[in-house]
Simulated scan of single mutants.
Amino acid sequence: MKIWDISPPVSERSPVFPGDTAYRQEWAATIAPGCPVNVSSITTTPHVGAHADAPLHYDPQGRAIGEVDLAPYLGPCRVIHAIGKGPLVEWAHIEHAVKDLPPRVLVRTYARMPVDAWDPQLAAYAPATIERLADLGVRLVGIDTASIDPAESKTLDSHQVIRRRDVRVLENLVLDEVPEGDYELIALPLKLVTADASPVRAVLRRP
């Protein structure tokens, strides 16, 4: 079985949204005489690396990530390429690949995803695109940038669409080596019972 790891590496080099909590790791214990193990602590935003936003992230009455149904994060999906098409993924950029859509859609916008640099010009979804995907039964949308909304947005229009349509979202995926087509997605969030997001180890596989 062929597996594509679509998660960026997570380290102190990982970019986070300006003002968010960067990744930091500290060692509480190290292997030495009298200590048989290495033990560390991590401090970071739950939006680091490949991650799943919880409804709580964009809805004050929304559920935390540990409370959401896991089904949207596991199952058939389609990767669609819309590389370098502009600041928003419009319907025209993906309509070549929307026939018989599975319930999960991941869109590639980068020729090469910047895994160690913040991109203020990141591509995002046009809200109307998410509306049309939801109309076709899509339950999860993903993208290879840090947000489904433009970095400077204060209204988060695409996030409000997924709130209203009860769609789940994955961000910061690495789709550089993934051909357009159909796969099985596995990207389960942690059971963080009060968190607004969770890192995921996202993979695609084909028999």
Rank of each mutant, 00 (worst) to 15 (best):
V138S: 05
L122G: 12
I42S: 14
W118P: 08
R112Y: 10
G62S: 14
V200W: 14
S147G: 13
R164P: 01
H51R: 13
R13K: 15
A32N: 07
M113T: 10
V141K: 01
G84N: 09
L190Y: 10
L173N: 05
Y23C: 06
T21V: 14
T194S: 13
D157T: 12
V203P: 07
H96F: 03
M1L: 07
D20C: 06
I42P: 12
I94L: 01
Q25W: 06
A97W: 00
T44L: 09
E171C: 15
A124V: 03
V174H: 03
I130D: 01
V68W: 00
L175R: 01
H93F: 04
S7N: 13
A29L: 15
H93T: 04
P179G: 10
P189G: 02
Y110S: 08
F17K: 12
G142S: 09
A50G: 13
V79A: 08
Q61P: 01
A195K: 02
I42N: 13
L56S: 12
A146V: 06
R104F: 05
I31D: 13
A54V: 04
I148C: 06
S14A: 15
V39A: 15
V10R: 08
H51C: 10
D176W: 00
L133G: 02
D182H: 01
D157G: 12
S158I: 03
D144E: 09
I3W: 11
T145P: 03
A187P: 04
R104W: 03
E152N: 14
Y73F: 15
R163W: 02
A111C: 11
E90Q: 03
S7D: 13
V141R: 02
P199A: 10
A82G: 05
V79P: 02
D157R: 15
H159L: 07
G137D: 10
R63L: 12
V169F: 06
I186C: 09
